[in-house]
């Protein structure tokens, strides 16, 4: 029993980051109807940018975080303007290939600059140490990561609900052409979506880099978060949050109970198996909307 509660709490902490990554996917998909596989690479970028600022340049934490966020913003603007805008209106395969390619491009750039070693922030970023709550030992970095993720998601939801741009974005989610006719600058909305997604990506990158260490394989963690979105359907932020938390718990439970029974590292495989199962039995996600097709 203690074991289960421990795993669930740890899973929720991890799940917070998955939720953050998943929300990043959802933001772009909702606005632009492009599924941004490169979100996975934004994580790596965030992790390495923070490493560069914090460790290599030894900037103070606030400056390093600001630098990383700026990298995220710049990346979002660049990607949207250079890659995605020429592809508006192309068949669905084009954005899939381009975002997948972008993921590998960013991986390539990082490999070129940093090489393949694994870096860590040590004690320079979030405080190490742990809290003991009853029998559960909570590593501080995990708890902070959870809190930061939730704050970021909360801020995003507030942005959607309270600001003028958020309203415009919600209109654009419904229909691009209608939004354009209403006088909303759809291209600007796309730009905002990409920037938001990239910023969310680099935030989750900083947190993940802190927990798992900076390595180019961080993007696989990003791909795992796709399972979280499928849980809630591609267009639902709430679903992504629930899905992320569930995924985290599920993964921790797998490590706790299933891993001794299975060879190798099932931790990598479980989210994908989970994803396949969801797709087979609930093709549009557990809470997703089923489209009625017309002839």
């Amino acid at each position: 029993m203690e074991q289960i509660i421990k795993l669930i709490v740890l899973g929720l902490c991890m799940g917070g980051i998955y939720a953050l990554v998943a929300v990043g996917y959802v933001v772009v998909y909702k606005s632009t109807k492009v599924f941004n596989f490169a979100q996975a690479a934004m994580i790596t970028v965030g992790a390495y940018a923070l490493y560069q600022a914090l460790i290599v340049w030894s900037l103070p934490i606030w400056a390093a975080v600001l630098f990383t966020l700026a990298v995220g913003v710049a990346l979002g603007l660049l990607v949207e303007r250079l890659l995605m805008r020429p592809l508006i209106g192309q068949p669905i395969l084009a954005p899939i290939v381009v975002t997948l390619g972008l993921m590998l491009l960013l991986r390539g750039v990082i490999l070129m600059i940093f090489g393949g070693q694994v870096y860590g922030y040590g004690e320079h970023f979030l405080p190490l140490g742990a809290w003991h709550v009853g029998f559960v030992t909570l590593p501080m970095i995990q708890v902070y990561a959870f809190i930061i993720s939730m704050v970021a998601i909360f801020a995003l939801i507030q942005f959607y609900n309270r600001t003028r741009m958020g309203l415009a974005m919600r209109v654009t989610h419904e229909d691009h052409v209608v939004a354009q006719n209403l006088g909303i600058n759809v291209k600007r909305v796309f730009q905002y979506s990409w920037v938001i997604a990239c910023v969310l990506g680099v935030i989750s990158g900083m947190l993940l880099g802190n927990i798992q260490g900076c390595c180019v394989e961080l993007d696989v963690t990003g791909l795992m978060a796709i399972a979280a979105i499928l849980f809630g359907g591609l267009e639902s932020i709430g679903g992504a949050i629930v899905g992320g938390l569930t995924l985290g718990v599920l993964q921790m439970l797998t490590i706790g109970y299933l891993a001794p029974l299975m060879p190798g590292e099932p931790i990598m495989m479980v989210p994908f198996a989970f994803m396949l199962l969801i797709l087979i039995f609930k093709p549009y996600g557990l809470f997703g909307l089923v489209r009625i097709e017309r002839l």
Partner: peptide, 22 residues
């Protein structure tokens, strides 16, 4: 750095080719 540069070089080159074609 040669090993990593080669790996990243092909990654970057391929992506650029694919994107340019698209």
């Amino acid at each position: 750095l040669a090993f990593y540069v080669t790996a990243s070089f092909s990654l970057i080159m391929y992506t650029l080719i694919i994107v340019i074609f698209l």
